[in-house]
Computed example of a mutant assay.
Amino acid sequence: MSKVKYYYDSDTLSYRKIERKKGRRFGFTFLIVIGVALAGFLFHILYLNLPQIETPKEKALKRELANMEIQYDILNKKMDQVNAVLTDIEDRDNNIYRLYFEANPIPEEVRRAGFGGINRYKDLEGYDNSELIIKSNKRMDVITKQLVVQSRSLDEIAVLAEDKEKLLAAIPAIQPVRNKDLSRIASGYGWRSDPFTKARKFHYGMDFTSPRGTPIYATGDGVIERADSRSTGYGNHIRIDHGYGYTSLYAHLYKYNVKKGQRVKRGDVIGFVGSTGRSQAPHLHYEIFKDGERINPINFYYGNLSPAEFNEILQKSQQENQSLD
């Protein structure tokens, strides 16, 4: 309950009640509200502009920014690790893989090439940490490009390796008759005495003496090009096209175990030793062609002979004796 105030009226010599005017009461209230609002506004301005005073939102943003900087630092360290591993792979790729498969090394300027043209990072400019963000993005883009270059290189190496594997499987690389089945190496590649004319004649293959019916093995992967007796002097014979310019010939066979057009693998039994055609005794006459030219088969037995066995067969093949065909 509000207090009632009085004043002394000297004219009437009595106390009269003080009547408050409504206009003054409203004006007083209005001034109070304006004063409070003005004071609040001034306080807010001071609060926002004093450097030592931070709003909760500013504090949250600062914490978020600090966390972002930590994450970018961790990201850069991880990129350092990835780059170290990638550099090692690139080094092995250039100096081992590509060298082995006779492919040209990838130039360093291709591996480390940047990005020209328009500014790819324009949208990242204008922020407090733009430099950090742009630098990290540039590193990530360069590493990504290096990975793409390396990936394509390994794809190329995979194709070369597959082709190399096919080449190694195709080259005639084993002895066509096993050592345990051999009676002897009758004659090697070179000048020999003809068994029929006794004249000195060049012998273009190697003769492996074995009993009639001894298995003969394909010396490399390939396709049977011929399996017939329609070649002068060879009798029943087989020719295998190994691809890559290599052909192997097996002559004087007793019988065949394959037919023309058949694909064979190294080590498959293709026929059996005989004495057909121009032959003096059961044996296998074996030849190798490279790009249509006969070459010495002695250089192609590394697939199933030990060094000692190879030296022994080399010495026997170099003896100028009488051939069997």
Results as ranks from 00 to 15, higher is better:
P56F: 09
I89E: 14
E64K: 15
E69Q: 13
M79T: 01
I53H: 01
L61S: 11
E19D: 12
R16A: 11
P51H: 05
K77W: 00
V33F: 13
D88W: 07
N83D: 11
V85Q: 15
H44M: 07
A66G: 05
D91A: 06
K57P: 00
D91G: 06
L50C: 02
L50A: 01
Q81H: 04
V82A: 14
E69V: 09
R63V: 12
K17P: 03
R16Q: 15
D88P: 01
I53T: 04
N83A: 10
R16N: 14
D11V: 14
S14H: 08
A39D: 00
A60V: 09
K77L: 01
L48N: 08
R25H: 14
R16P: 07
D93F: 09
P51F: 06
R16C: 09
K77D: 01
I34T: 13
G27L: 14
E90F: 09
L65N: 12
D11R: 13
L86C: 01
K17F: 04
V82K: 10
A60Y: 04
P51D: 07
L86D: 05
R25P: 06
S14Y: 01
I32S: 04
P56C: 01
P51G: 00
A37N: 05
M79E: 02
L42C: 06
D11C: 02
L50H: 04
P56H: 08
I74T: 09
S10E: 15
R63H: 11
A37L: 08
I89L: 13
K59A: 09
R92P: 03
A66Y: 10
L38S: 14
